[in-house]
Design a protein around this nucleic acid. Structure first.
Length: 152
DNA sequence: GCCAACGTTGGC
DNA sequence: GCCAACGTTGGC
């Protein structure tokens, strides 16, 4: 079972929004980056753990856990002309963008801040610290185990 | 709000 | 297929 980091701006959609969603479940759509798309389409599996990361806010960092509860499927918003995620070049026979559904698991009592993550030598290889803009990224088994010891 | 990093677009 | 221009992300 793999671990993933999903970035979100809490002003758009936060861990609290996930918790208060119907069935505490939400579609993670609108991903329009090919590297992130490949992770979704080719690697995400039901049961995988999702670490929710809050970006672009006063307390950037890991806010809680969710889990993948659907297989990857074509992101419907790519075919909705009024959606900001509409993609005129994507066809039903060959969908360009994919999404999954995730379900809330838990919120951390305090956000594990970016500076706190940076201060851990064991986490120095996290993609988060090297490729700041990638919105969906894998977390290694070792990193996840270490992160779990830092949160409560 | 600024700015660096970096992904995407489009002309050639 | 290169690369400059441009747009977006995200930390601060």
């Amino acid at each position: 079972m793999a671990h993933w980091l999903f970035k979100t701006e809490p002003s758009e959609f936060s861990i609290d929004d996930l918790q208060t969603s119907a069935q505490q479940t939400a579609r993670w759509d609108g991903i329009r980056n090919y590297q992130a798309r490949n992770f979704i389409r080719d690697q995400l599996q039901p049961g995988d753990t999702v670490w929710i990361y809050h970006s672009q806010c006063s307390k950037t960092g890991l806010a809680g856990l969710a889990k993948v509860v659907s297989p990857p499927y074509p992101d419907p918003s790519q075919w909705e002309p009024l959606s900001p995620y509409f993609d005129v070049k994507s066809t039903e026979n060959s969908p360009r963008w994919f999404c999954i559904d995730i379900q809330y698991q838990r919120s951390f009592s305090a956000v594990l801040s970016l500076p706190a993550i940076k201060s851990e030598p064991a986490l120095a290889d996290m993609i988060l610290l090297k490729q700041g803009r990638l919105s969906i990224q894998p977390i290694s088994e070792t990193q996840a185990a270490h992160l779990l010891r830092l949160v409560n």
